[in-house]
Design a protein around this nucleic acid. Structure first.
Length: 571
DNA sequence: ATAGGGTTAG
């Protein structure tokens, strides 16, 4: 109580102090001390002001003021500064349940799950957890897919008689859904005493994550009231399910939209390659945030429109929006496609000069990829070697870099080192290493990896993987083997497979097999003139000039022209 | 004074 009074005193003192300052025009009083801590807490929006408030609480003797400390902890959580929070918390001599819960929630949001759990156990020595203690904890279990921990917390909840708490139950619905126990979620939902928009929305999101759009829609139509998040969950759910038509329909129907509604929709179009529709919505949208810019920039990068991606990045820069890690990944992947050393250097400098956070594994991987594709293998290797913990994606970037620069053997070495480190390769990693083996003519290694992929890692080979193998065998001149391989495919070969076969035929002047491949290519990608050009080259090499002119006729009749290739020559 | 459901990356 006395402390509370002291707090009030200091706040009234500050107003007199301000008056004194005005009347006497004395030496400047530090701004922070003339304002009350409470109002400082209210207006604090950055780490800098937090750093000023922290010593102030100590100096003004407000460390035992639990309401104030509680506000301080919430502020620390929003600024992701757990150190200040726990520092202040542990100075409180007997923190009440409010404070314990607040720090527990801070920890759930900012710490590893194991730390949060030990804090929870510490808390239980002096407090009985209530309805505010569990939701964040359960949420943390959901995001870490910690099924057993979450389930044991659930039994503690039952034991404490807290299962009917609306917040707790909603977090449990989400938790069981994330652990793919949809039935358990639904049971909790059906037996609820009362539901609100949040619990309905949680249930809908669970159905979308289990790919059940029909039930999700059924609940959406049935629920009594919807809010913005409900609509956004529906749009995002349809987008992720590839149903852009329904997503767009709801997008047009919804009473109000925010940046997430726009970004989900834009991202959906961008990922499906429909950059025109994405751009249309993007232009319509006034409050563009980093998410929407990054959706557009990565969309252009993935659609192989690096110039558009780069232009948008510059526009974003001009509008003074600070790029985040995802934007940097998109930008770098666009620059990798441009393949110019000067641009790669520019991006490298841009990032370091602006102190942008480029230490995430994804950004580093993109940076390695960009440098490798822009011919600066030294820089790529430097970045790769300076990574303390190399992950799957960075290994892939580096292996692909080696492969591009003709050192397939080095790529294979890296792949084996990666396995030794205990990193589990995925389908993309195998595509990279198989391509590398193909380019270096490492038949034995390639075949070994292909077998390893199927037998040891249980990955079903995709048409891309088969194309790599056909390329590998074909380059080595094992044409019969390559063709046998194509015929053995359990899935329909796509253009990449036949294309690999055709180029192998061109390399080894195998006219008969080339004719077979071309026939199939004309079915799957009739618009690609390159295939016909390859074929005419094969005929020409075989002195079959009548066939050559026949191909030329076909091309003229279909109005096909070879798209001129372009090469960047590095110095 | 404390809590639950929604967004981007090879």
């Amino acid at each position: 109580m006395t402390l509370f009074l002291r707090f009030r005193c200091s706040s009234s003192y500050s107003s007199t102090s301000a008056l004194t300052t005005i009347t006497t025009i004395a030496a400047p009083v530090p701004a922070a001390s003339s304002l009350s801590v409470a109002s400082l807490l209210f207006s604090c929006r950055s780490l800098r002001s937090l750093e000023q408030i922290h010593p102030l609480i100590i100096r003004k003797g407000l460390e035992q003021h639990q309401v104030l400390v509680c506000r301080f902890l919430v502020l620390c959580t929003s600024l992701a500064e757990l150190r200040y929070a726990s520092d202040v918390f542990y100075r409180v001599s007997s923190p009440n349940l409010f404070l314990w819960n607040t720090l527990l929630n801070a920890s759930s949001n900012l710490s590893p799950l194991s730390d949060t759990l030990s804090f929870f156990n510490l808390m239980r020595r002096s407090q009985c957890p209530d309805g505010f203690s569990f939701p964040c904890l359960i949420k943390s279990c959901s995001s870490h897919a910690a099924f057993f921990l979450g389930a044991s917390l659930h039994s503690a909840i039952l034991h404490l008689g807290l299962e009917d708490d609306l917040f707790i139950r909603t977090s449990l619905i989400n938790f069981y859904g994330k652990c793919s126990h949809v039935d358990a979620s639904r049971k909790l939902f059906d037996t609820m005493l009362n539901r609100n928009e949040v619990s309905w929305t949680a249930m809908i999101a669970v159905y979308f994550s289990s790919c059940d759009t029909v039930t999700a829609r059924f609940l959406f139509d049935k629920m009594p009231e919807r809010n913005l998040i409900t609509w956004n969950v529906m749009i995002d759910g349809y987008v992720k399910a590839g149903d852009l038509a329904n997503a767009r329909k709801l997008f047009e129907e919804m009473p109000q939209r925010n940046e997430i509604s726009f970004t989900s929709m834009i991202d959906g179009y961008a990922k499906s390659g429909d950059m025109d529709s994405a751009r249309f919505l993007f232009e319509q949208f006034n409050n563009k945030d980093v998410f929407s810019w990054s959706a557009m920039i990565s969309g252009y990068a993935q659609s192989y429109k690096p110039t558009e991606a780069f232009k948008l990045f510059l526009e974003m820069h001009n509008r003074k929006i600070r790029p985040d890690q995802v934007v940097l990944v998109g930008l770098m992947s666009a620059c990798a496609q441009l393949g110019r050393t000067s641009i790669a250097k520019w991006v490298d400098q841009y990032v370091s000069q602006r102190f942008l956070d480029a230490n995430g594994p994804r950004v580093l991987a993109a940076m390695i990829d960009m440098n490798a594709k822009c011919g600066n293998m030294k820089r790529a290797a430097f970045l790769f070697n300076s990574m303390q913990t190399k992950d799957l994606v960075s290994y892939c970037s580096m292996m692909q870099g080696c492969s591009i620069h003709g050192s397939g053997a080095q790529a294979a070495e890296l792949f084996d080192r990666m396995l030794e480190e205990g990193i589990v390769p995925d389908d993309v990693a195998f595509t990279v290493i198989l391509t590398a083996c193909g380019q270096a003519g490492l038949i034995e290694d390639g075949s070994r990896y292909f077998k390893m992929m199927k037998d040891e890692y249980g990955i079903v080979p995709s048409p891309d993987h088969y194309a790599c193998m056909v390329d590998l065998l074909g380059r080595a001149g094992l044409m019969g083997e390559a063709y046998k391989f194509v015929k053995s495919m359990p899935v329909e070969p796509h253009a990449g497979v036949w294309g690999a076969l055709l180029s192998a035929c061109k390399m080894h002047c195998n006219r008969e097999l080339a004719e077979i491949a071309l026939q199939r290519l004309c079915e799957v990608e009739p618009e690609n003139a390159g295939n016909l050009v390859s074929m005419s080259n094969i005929y020409a090499a075989d002195d079959r000039w009548a066939d050559v002119s026949q191909i030329r006729n076909i091309m003229r009749l279909r109005g096909l022209r070879k798209i001129p290739g372009c090469t960047w020559v590095y110095s």
